[in-house]
Design a protein around this nucleic acid. Structure first.
Lengths: 215, 215
DNA sequence: TGATGTGAAGAACTTCACAGCA
DNA sequence: TGCTGTGAAGTTCTTCACATCA
């Protein structure tokens, strides 16, 4: 239970949790690894392995008790506490993310936007998130107890911004800028590279996605 | 050279290409797998393996000729042709993506937005992308030769929208909605799940990102 | 009986180490 | 000599198969 848990397992835990939310809302009492597997097109053993990292969460012969597993997953994922998020970069993407309803749903709160442009600073996003000057990041981060930063700035300024964020003591970053960024080992950086995603699609189109599957 | 190439390899090819663009702009003649490896914090052998899937692209004792490798990668990734992209969902996120400069850079052209709301249809995004009625998807897709669709709609409508896109003959989808979506085997679906990404960060915060690295 | 938890087998991916060639 | 291309070894992740237990 104290071992390393892989990134892949972690990501799947999120998916399981989302499904458990639905099941609980629907009043379902228990769920088996088989049902979870069917839902996500995964192997049932993989789901049991994923969950077994965190103790014996299931009941033999029965499956997993929905309310219990849901609560446990929320705890494991750290969603049982307040998570204050900031978005750096009040451009189109930053604004869209600030108002993205999906974030709010699982308990994340977008508490601040940051930018450098004087005519943006002082304003608010549509949903009311205030825009601060990036120079105030450290102070605001402490005041608002921000633990996660979303970086949505142009590629050129990405590394500088990331450095600023790290200096402000924030240990978890979700980055939307392209390019290789460096962070200290105690900081967790997760990147969403939109260009890589599109190019991967282009590759599949170029190759032909319908070539015969492995023999 | 005709074998299966893994998703992971494909994604890295995009990164290599981006770096080669910089090198070519800087007038650099050749680059070794070692230099590429240092840049991306990868093993040099991995880079050689990635590239060797596509023939003998390098020169022993020298490395890779920048202009040649760049051109070859663009070809492999299917970027040597026009790639017309549509965005389904003219909400905050859809608009932000439509105007995202990173897409245009590598030759992707956002040619259309789609939505269902009558007061959005007929308008244009800031950068001038016209918004169509989703019911016209099939016609517009053919007219504009759209090969890639970006899905940025609320979770509830995602599967319906994906079905519509598939019916319109589009074989490559980049999806931003949460949840498990189904597509036929000849369609390539790539999903960016923002909630999963944030929850993965939350997990690392909860566990402590600075626990001792593997012994 | 039915579904979990898990050691062992298998598959996929990465790194090592070196032959081979400019 | 220097760097690629690649078989073999190593590592990580997934699936199989079954003992175990409610």
């Amino acid at each position: 239970m104290a071992e390393q848990v892989s990134e892949q397992t972690t990501n799947r835990l999120s998916l399981y949790l989302r499904f458990l939310n639905e099941l609980e809302a629907g009043g379902v009492r228990t769920v088996s690894s088989k049902v979870l597997a069917a839902r996500f097109d995964l192997n049932a053993a993989l789901i049991r392995k994923d969950l077994s990292h965190f103790g014996d969460l299931g009941v033999r012969g029965v499956g997993y008790v929905v309310v219990d597993l849901r609560q446990r997953l929320r705890q494991i994922l750290g969603l049982d506490r307040r998570l204050n998020v900031t978005i750096i970069g009040a451009g189109n993407l930053g604004f869209a993310l600030a108002d993205y309803p999906g974030f709010r749903k699982e308990g994340f709160r977008i508490v601040a936007l940051f930018d450098t442009l004087p005519d943006k600073v002082g304003r608010r996003s549509r949903s009311g998130v205030p825009i601060h000057d990036i120079r105030d990041l450290k102070r605001v981060a402490r005041q608002e107890q921000i633990t996660i930063a979303v970086v949505a700035v142009p590629a050129e300024s990405a590394q500088v911004v990331v450095n600023t964020v790290v200096e402000a003591g924030i240990k978890a970053l979700l980055n939307f800028s392209p390019g290789a960024l460096r962070v200290p080992p105690d900081v967790k950086l997760k990147s969403v590279d939109l260009t890589v995603s599109l190019e991967s699609l282009s590759f599949h189109l170029a190759r032909g996605v319908d070539r015969p599957p492995r023999p």
